[in-house]
Design a protein around this nucleic acid. Structure first.
Lengths: 110, 110
DNA sequence: TGGCGCCATGTCAGATCTGACATAGCATGG
DNA sequence: CCATGCTATGTCAGATCTGACATGGCGCCA
């Protein structure tokens, strides 16, 4: 939360947050980053299942290959809005989203 | 999708989209607006359950009363990002989100 | 009537996000 | 070796979103 504070200094990515809070994420921050990650993963797997290239997906949603790459990489410069819209554009339903969000579809960390 | 096109002209809200497409939303657009609506409703009811005023919630999330009002009104100027972060700030879990999203918690329209 | 708490709506400067472009890495097939 | 296709990463102008502020409405109690 309150990204602005550190923003002028870091002007690129999570950096500050991730490093400092590596072991001290508040519950809500953790939920937020995890949500993003799940959407990102979901997007990639859905795209691959459909045998689309990033450029192909980009064309569909009126964006560019590079932005799609960033979405899938969970780059801090992409919003949840964009992720969600892209998922819908690939035919995901609300239910699909809900599944992606609550189910831990995360790659096992350990 | 592709909001920019009409944006310079309308410079305020859904307007163009809503009126013109009143009966012709694509599936993805429908899913998107419905998702927003559900998050907005979810936020309001969660806040009320916690007996917080909009100003109170605003303070918690480092925002302002007016923005909270806009969130709950599903104003086009608020992003899903903000809605989601606010929900998390009120203690919602990923699972809560998923429920809000897939369950039709919409006020019955008729 | 006035004061008070709460919510809605408009506006705006400044912060953030976005598409586009450039460029590089890395396989696979020639 | 060189193409070709796909993905990753950086940059930037322009679009969008955000917090703050101002103001108005509504209900309620004195």
């Amino acid at each position: 939360m309150r990204r602005e504070k550190t923003t002028q200094l870091t002007r690129k990515g999570w950096k500050v947050g991730t490093v400092r809070e590596f072991l001290a994420l508040s519950a809500e921050e953790a939920a937020y980053v995890e949500l993003r990650l799940r959407l990102a993963n979901s997007l990639r797997s859905r795209r691959q299942r459909m045998k689309l290239s990033q450029a192909g997906l980009a064309a569909r949603i009126g964006s560019s290959q590079s932005r799609v790459a960033k979405m899938e990489a969970d780059d801090p410069s992409v919003s949840i809005d964009l992720l969600v819209r892209s998922l819908f554009a690939l035919g995901a339903t609300s239910r699909d989203l809900a599944r992606a969000i609550s189910h831990s579809a995360l790659p096992k960390a350990s």
